[in-house]
Design a protein around this nucleic acid. Sequence first.
DNA 1: CCGCATCCGATTGGATACTG
DNA 2: CAGTATCCAATCGGATGCGG
Lengths: 211, 211
Amino acid sequence: MPTNRSYRDSCGMARALDVVGERWALLVVRELLLVPQRFSELRHALPNASSNLLADRLRELEHHGVIHRRKLATDSGPQVYDLTAWGRKLEPIVLALCDWGIDAPNPPEPSSLSATSVLIFLRDHARPDPAAPPYVCRLDLDGSIWTVSVDIGKVQVEYGEPPKADISLRTTPKTLGNLLANPAELDAALADGSATLVGDLQTLTWLLSGG
Amino acid sequence: MPTNRSYRDSCGMARALDVVGERWALLVVRELLLVPQRFSELRHALPNASSNLLADRLRELEHHGVIHRRKLATDSGPQVYDLTAWGRKLEPIVLALCDWGIDAPNPPEPSSLSATSVLIFLRDHARPDPAAPPYVCRLDLDGSIWTVSVDIGKVQVEYGEPPKADISLRTTPKTLGNLLANPAELDAALADGSATLVGDLQTLTWLLSGG
DNA sequence: CCGCATCCGATTGGATACTG
DNA sequence: CAGTATCCAATCGGATGCGG
């Protein structure tokens, strides 16, 4: 059952926290920043949140107008959760909190890392050489396909298959997170199969080493 | 007893919420944005938080390096809580959340409003006429004295007695909040004594009507 | 008073099992 | 797949106690 408690404080901050201050709420918002997601995808992205809690949060966030349910492909097809216009305005706040939290102590192991999390980190923290030629990377994370485009030092991340890719990488979000923190481990990851590359190794090195 | 739970998610956002995601934590940070405060002042500013919870949060925030205790006036005198350098970096995030929350439904009545909350709102949302002459307002909120300086359309808020004030206003945070939302009620507030003005009425009207 | 600590009933969160 | 139902532990909120 969804919660109903309030800080009973007129300040905008307290009213914001009445809406997105409950546990897991802002992590759901983070998950929806790059692409609308289904219930099971959110469960996979937030494995430490129990299903009843996730259902409660989704109901609350929908009730408060932060997210809404809709059908993919107009009418038929699976249902996904997406941010509303108001919910989308949380994006800079969520990104700023991501930055701030980087200086916090690491969480206890084992810890999860969703595809969305690592792609946001890649997009906002990679500093690819602006002099390098533009390229497109097809990224397969846990079976979901993403398009990472790099041009003039800018990184763009989109959900879905690229029309044409220069290189293709298949790995897990956690491995990619480790590689961004420590690009020197790339050779080892390719050797033991935790990452698979098709295309030019140097291009991938450019992408990773900028993080 | 302070909590110890974690999202066990490596994303910066989750690690940030491991630190400031517990209930009341960000409201404590908000309270400390303008001036360090004592335990009893924080209790008064956050009347809906129980004392044990507030003590727990202060301990946790101190342990995580967001706030620290210190003595006023070097060594002796009362103890206050203040933001650390890392905690201070939350300021833009807190202010952005304040803005975002303004579009949320109002909390159930009765609802509190601290001096810090209303002063932050005044500072960041008042749009005084840039052509008006500069002035200084001495503000007495619940017995605490603040200095509000307006110059070229910019509002500055500081804790403490102004060296010299053009006008002086005494009221409560809640009344001031109402006046900022509805400046037309100023006459009524002055008439029924919920606000007391010394100085030029037009100057105060300028300040309020910009919100 | 100030600065908490203790106790306790009411909610909420987390883990697991289950259903349409 | 998309959630419910259930149960128990942790947390919250409110009242009270207590030394300085």
